[in-house]
Design a protein around this nucleic acid. Structure first.
Lengths: 140, 140
DNA sequence: TTGTAAAGATTACAGATGTAAACGAAGGAA
DNA sequence: TTCCTTCGTTTACATCTGTAATCTTTACAA
């Protein structure tokens, strides 16, 4: 299974349609995508093909207008890509980044509660300070 | 000022050195980067040039071994890139993603406290549910 | 003054990406 | 049976990226 990091931005947006619908024909995907982008039909077809090649989408070729299904779960993809980005942030700045994200995201009460209790658990063993390791090695 | 999204991954890692040091010569950057990567000197020089062209780094050409300085602040760059990624996530999944991120990041007690109080404030006006808008328009 | 090392600039090149047109096959209308 | 419409496949192409070698210009050692 190809790494999620190889999924390009445009491809990611195509996947969102399939993740949300569960499965769909290219026609449906094109229809929905054109509500959010100005991509030409051909462009979207190309992206679907690339997603198949990368192993993120599978076409059921039995029925004629193929029905495409995601081969990777949305939550897994999100997990990988979000953590991947965080891996390239300065360790010291991650807390801030998360705070910033919370400020800019709409989050449901129940998710907020989950996060709060996670944090309450986490604070017990949290370090006083997180060391920056941007220069590699220790000895900052 | 060029958008942070145009900063490639490799370039980002070069910036981290300059952000951390505040300023540095190419030699220093190369030295530090070679502690974390196996990039050849030439590769790093190319990346520095590209960062200059994109307007993220500036060279002080007065002194001879040029001294490079970031033209964008790390926190701003992090803000932009992290929020940019979140913009392409399903709204419904952002809470989960943040929880996941917290699970996988080392965060200082003080940052955790900040986040907790932010959440306590936020929960007051938080929605019961967040709507998915992956298909564009309303009428999911 | 001149050679040389260091550092900056130019050139290179394959693969990924955004963006799409054109081509070909398959199924339905006539 | 034949043509047109769909839909999938191929081809296209400029730009960006990763990755680097080479060329050129400076500053310093001799």
């Amino acid at each position: 299974m190809t790494k999620v990091e190889t999924m390009s931005n445009a491809e990611w947006n195509v996947m969102r349609i399939f993740w949300t619908l569960g499965q769909a024909t290219s026609k449906e995907a094109i229809m929905y995508l054109q509500r959010k982008t100005d991509w030409k039909e051909a462009t979207i077809k190309t992206l679907i093909i690339r997603l198949q090649k990368k192993g993120f989408l599978k076409a059921d070729e039995a029925s004629r207008p193929y029905v495409y299904t995601p081969l990777i779960e949305e939550s897994d993809a999100i997990h990988e890509s979000v953590n991947n980005l965080f891996d390239s942030l300065c360790c010291m700045k991650k807390g801030q980044a998360i705070e910033d994200l919370i400020n800019n995201s709409e989050i449901s009460k129940s998710d907020i509660n989950d996060i709060i209790s996670l944090l309450n658990k986490k604070i017990i063993s949290a370090p006083e300070e997180v060391e920056c390791d941007c220069l590699g090695k220790e000895t900052a």
